[in-house]
């Protein structure tokens, strides 16, 4: 099985850690992520309007280029955009027709590629049990709050990742690396997202709520898969001391491949 890997724009710049530790860990677990040639930025947000074609074409191209394997995403935003695009290609005939008319692939693409988030690869290909066995430095005693945010789970109809209201994929991951998950009610609420460019006070309010909730439930740290969440939680929620990490960094640490 070929695991095509779509890093996305932020993982090449501000979120290099998410990318670097992700690749190293997967390699240590025996899976090679092959970076897709000529990938282009997904645009960060899926344009919901049915008549928006051009804004989704970079995702369509990445999907069509991955037909011989699985397309693995790591950034929550890329994951969200590409999975929603794939869902539209499979379920919205008019959109698929227009995208295919423009793209002129040798064989028309209609949503056949399987898209998996990195966490889904851990869960469904590696298996959390096997991950736990591969862990060299278990993060014993660490109380970790998983932060899903909005992009990883919703809309569940298209993303099909986990129960959108009571997810457990990150908690299972936390257990697998030897730490203890901390449950808190705001783990799937929005951090304020791209509103940071418009009005940082919104991001501050939303991220502050998330940080408060995780802190009072006893978390030592928060993990996320989203560069924008990490930015908002660390930068726009001042007065909070809990560190926020990319989950791949803790994974690399647990697997003993962090340098």
């Amino acid at each position: 099985m070929v695991y095509h890997y779509y890093p996305g724009c932020t993982l090449k710049t501000k979120a290099k850690d998410l990318d670097r530790y992700g690749r190293k860990s997967m390699e240590a677990l025996g899976i090679t992520l092959t970076e897709l040639e000529n990938w282009q930025c997904c645009g960060g947000a899926f344009t919901m309007a049915k008549d928006e074609i051009a804004t989704k074409l970079s995702s369509v191209r990445a999907l069509a280029d991955s037909r011989d394997g699985v397309l693995v995403t790591l950034c929550s935003a890329c994951h969200n955009v590409i999975k929603q695009t794939n869902y539209a290609m499979a379920n919205d005939a008019e959109f698929a027709m227009k995208a295919n008319n423009y793209s002129k692939f040798d064989v028309p693409y209609n949503g056949e590629t399987k898209v998996m988030h990195y966490l889904e690869v851990l869960r469904d290909v590696v298996g959390f049990d096997n991950l736990a066995k591969a862990v060299k430095n278990p993060l014993k005693g660490k109380k970790i709050a998983a932060y899903y945010g909005c992009l990883l789970l919703r809309p569940s109809k298209a993303l099909q990742m986990d129960n959108p209201e009571n997810p457990k994929i990150l908690e299972d991951f936390i257990r697998a690396i030897g730490a203890e998950p901390v449950l808190y009610p705001y783990r799937n609420e929005c951090c304020g997202g791209y509103m940071a460019t418009e009005d940082q006070s919104v991001a501050a309010k939303k991220s502050g709520q998330v940080m408060d909730s995780a802190a009072e439930m006893g978390a030592d740290m928060i993990i996320t898969a989203c560069p924008l969440c990490l930015y908002n939680l660390t930068k726009n929620a001042p007065g909070h001391q809990i560190p926020v990490y990319y989950f791949t960094e803790l994974l690399a640490e647990a697997l003993g491949v962090k340098d």
Binding site: P185, Y186, E189, S213, E216, M217, G218
Partner: peptide
């Protein structure tokens, strides 16, 4: 729309 328990036992 959302129910959020707090550590002090209150439920928002």
């Amino acid at each position: 729309g959302k129910v959020a328990p707090r550590a002090d036992g209150k439920i928002m």
